[in-house]
Design a protein around this nucleic acid. Structure first.
Lengths: 335, 335
DNA sequence: CTGTTAGCGCATTCAT
DNA sequence: ATGAATGCGCTAACAG
């Protein structure tokens, strides 16, 4: 590690025979500088390969040109897809994202958040997570904040999340368009609003298609794989025919797949299965995994753009997304 | 965005009735401070929720507590896996990685590198990429540098990369252990050293197992999918029997799978296929994709730890890795 | 248009 | 053990 000589703005000023202010001005373009001087400065900068010290710049400006990103698990397909979008969103802007990982532990998450704040990030993107809403709101008062994949009503348009109702609606509609009429639905735990919304979307799609919803085709699960398996057993026990299953998440779809396999029912030959995803854990469960990738990327990109807008008082983008379904007729290959 | 009052070290000093030097000392522990004063300072810090301004700290110390990571494509399974390892490696250290994306364009990559350098990162991890070796070496003189997934001899132990020979050796050995004796090999373009090394590993494994290598079982491919398909056609044309195929990368394994499928040859029932991966593009091709994940994570983690050692003059870790094969008997589900 | 001056917030001598 | 003084490199008034 050779100790390279660090050239400062004073060096430039001296060799260009101007004051450091002038150098600063040609650098930032904050004021007009006479052509000759300007050229001289530029020349010296080039010669000495001068790079302004970002620490000093930050100290005086108060800005770091960094954006904090609080994710929940680096390496998780869903969260990583959001990160992809975020990086794309910042593209050639002057801002660099700094990612901190909450690892799905509240304590870790809060530490990570504090780290980001201590680094004086100019903006913050929080992806999912479980920091209390209040803390989030408080943070949002200190620094431009966008929340992804989590709905915080008080944050209004500063949230990017998927519309569960619409997603389920589209999923069901897709199956209908494929010719299915008897579509079973395995719900998530109906104590959770996500599950309820998805159920409602399912019902609405049926109604809109003129299909009478049949309670016998609906089984409540709990978002876990095994509940998908049990749900199929239940459906079969009921004796009601069905040609397709819409599971409220991929884990349960996976479990449903297993139950059908055991019964010798072919997928998608005899029965089609459609799952959906917005839980990282379920993204893990089903390796083909791309169900949520595209919308996740889009959410990330939108979040990055939104941050940039907040930072520049630019026009605020529309953050309402609806999930693009990347349909999988079968959810898993190996049982 | 309420303008929060920023509390500085002076505020603490004043309210604790000590000098700012003392506050600085209790903060950094750079000198012993009398208990009572120490307690007072801590108390005030707590009360005011004081956070040292990292810009000022960096300006005076010259350190950013930031590590630059130059990757080639965020969103690529292989590169992302390395990033996972890097994040893990920095764990609870005081350092945060800042990731910049080269997007597989040399120009973009160089810009990204410069961005990182301009941010005055304390260390740099370069994953693959194509910046000229010379530039890399020069950079390595300015800042602690570790190169991952690329072999730069001049960098000596500051490179973390996979041993292609050993990887191929292990892959072949695995097949032998599964009982295969007639193992075909689809090589990469033999103009590339990676392909040659893998071929050599294949041959060595056979020899060590007392199996006479048969040239008729080796077909040269070019790392692309179609060459895998053609290679299988070629093998079948030759009429030589084989029970397993070791392809030098996943793309070709994928192509081989296709050829067998067309012929009605079951995988892995009739023939086993084993691929390997160290090209991001091929990681894309075969969605189950985890072939290289674990070793990639380990490389990333090692790189992070190495950087930390470089920064603290700690013991330098051993960076020699050999690829852990995560075996796939079949490479793709859909043809 | 341009030079001079005064901090930004902190760590670090240097005295005491 | 502690306070006062100095400067890190830069930007932004403030005169000219």
């Amino acid at each position: 590690m050779t100790e390279e000589v660090k050239v400062t703005i004073d060096d430039i000023a001296e060799r260009a025979r101007v004051s450091k202010s002038t150098v600063s001005r040609v650098l930032s373009g904050s004021a007009v500088v006479a052509q000759p001087k300007r050229a001289a400065v530029l020349k010296v900068i080039e010669e000495l390969d001068y790079r302004p010290n970002i620490f000093a710049q930050s100290l005086v400006s108060g800005r770091s040109f960094t954006i904090g990103v609080l994710t929940q698990n680096i390496g998780s397909p869903f969260y990583d897809a959001v990160l992809v979008g975020i990086h794309e969103g910042f593209g050639n802007s002057d801002y660099s994202p700094i990612v901190a990982d909450g690892r799905w532990h509240l304590a870790t998450e809060q530490t990570a958040l504090q780290t980001l704040l201590d680094r004086r990030v100019d903006g913050l993107i929080v992806i999912g997570g479980s920091v209390p809403k209040e803390k989030l709101l408080r943070t949002g008062e200190q620094v431009p904040l966008i929340v992804v994949a989590r709905h915080v009503p008080e944050l209004g348009s500063r949230c990017v999340y998927l519309d569960n109702f619409e997603a389920a609606y589209k999923a069901t509609k897709y199956l209908i368009e494929q010719g299915h009429r008897e579509i079973a639905h395995i719900t998530g735990a109906l104590s959770q609003s996500d599950a309820v919304r998805r159920h409602e979307g399912y019902l609405q799609a049926l109604s809109d298609a003129g299909i009478e919803p049949d309670p016998d085709l609906v089984v409540e699960g709990n978002f876990r794989r095994q509940s998908g398996t049990l749900a199929v057993e239940m459906l079969i026990t009921r004796g009601r025919m069905f040609s397709a299953i819409f599971a409220a998440n991929d884990q349960m779809a996976f479990g449903a797949r297993l139950a059908l396999y055991r019964r010798g029912i072919r997928v998608p030959g005899d029965v089609s299965i459609l799952g959906m995803d917005d839980e990282p854990a379920s993204a893990y469960m089903t390796p083909p995994l791309t169900t949520m990738r595209q919308p996740a990327i889009e959410m990330g990109e939108a979040a990055a753009q939104a941050i940039l807008c907040l930072l520049n008082d630019g026009p605020f983008p529309n953050l309402q997304f609806s999930m693009e379904l990347i349909v999988r007729e079968t959810v898993a290959r190996h049982i």
